[in-house]
Design a protein around this nucleic acid. Structure first.
Lengths: 134, 134
DNA sequence: CCGCATCCTATTCGATACTG
DNA sequence: CAGTATCGAATAGGATGCGG
């Protein structure tokens, strides 16, 4: 049996009690899924190597894992062509495309990262001066 | 020194090349941050124990870690009152509140979890029949 | 080309016990 | 009450090598 299945982590329905959107978060924002969905959403149908090239730092193993998971969750489809050499193409599904408003909201918030950066600098500066006093 | 700092993981700016929203994802959707922000957003200013009670399965250690991180990122504020017993209150900032549209988009997508559930069942069923054939 | 298997490491998380 | 310190367990992720 494989080391990892295609299953999403399933945090035992834990944080759900305080936060009804946690299942969606686990689905869409577990590690690497966002870049994958984003790329397939922007650039359309694409083969394995192409995805690998675009998401430069991902390893093939992890890319396979995430793609299987996304396939199981119905967010992408996998098409296998038994040619030589073999070809596999991935494409985002309608369900995956329905995440577009979510991604748009995400995009619209990115300018605020500047403020986050400022907040971090302030916080770190305050921490440093506190260390000196201690 | 503490085991963990308040810093966000910083995935070496990795998936960013293929996906400009990755920094925001790391900020808002790292583990436990969504339930915390959600709770503070819904129910307002709140003390430590109260948060602990609402997010039932989180441990105080991890809750502290995440709150420090969110404070550093400028998404929540921490107010300490040197009384006996001591009191600490956390509150979401304006920057944190500006995430509201994002959370709304998330909420609106939750009905689609049914389709995800169906997709998983189909996938698992197909897997099982494939196993039998092998 | 695609991707699975195996081994191994690093990070993270939880459990527990203890302070101001 | 609001944390911190320390330890141990689980898990994700990387490296490498092989197979269809």
């Amino acid at each position: 049996m494989a080391e990892d299945t295609a299953r999403t982590p399933e945090p035992a329905a834990d944080p759900e009690n305080a936060c009804p959107v946690s299942p969606v978060v686990d689905l869409v924002f577990s590690r690497w899924t966002t870049p994958i969905l984003w790329t397939l959403h922007q650039s359309g149908r694409m083969r394995f190597v192409e995805l690998e090239r675009r998401i430069t730092t991902i390893t093939p193993k992890v890319l396979t894992q995430r793609l299987r998971q996304l396939e199981r969750d119905g967010l992408v489809t996998r098409a296998y062509y038994a040619e030589v050499p073999p070809r596999v193409e991935y494409e985002i599904t309608d369900l995956g495309r329905s995440l577009a408003p979510l991604f748009a909201a995400l995009s619209e918030w990115t300018p605020n990262m500047d403020k986050v950066e400022q907040a971090r600098n302030s916080y770190d500066a305050a921490q440093r001066s506190r260390s000196r006093r201690a």
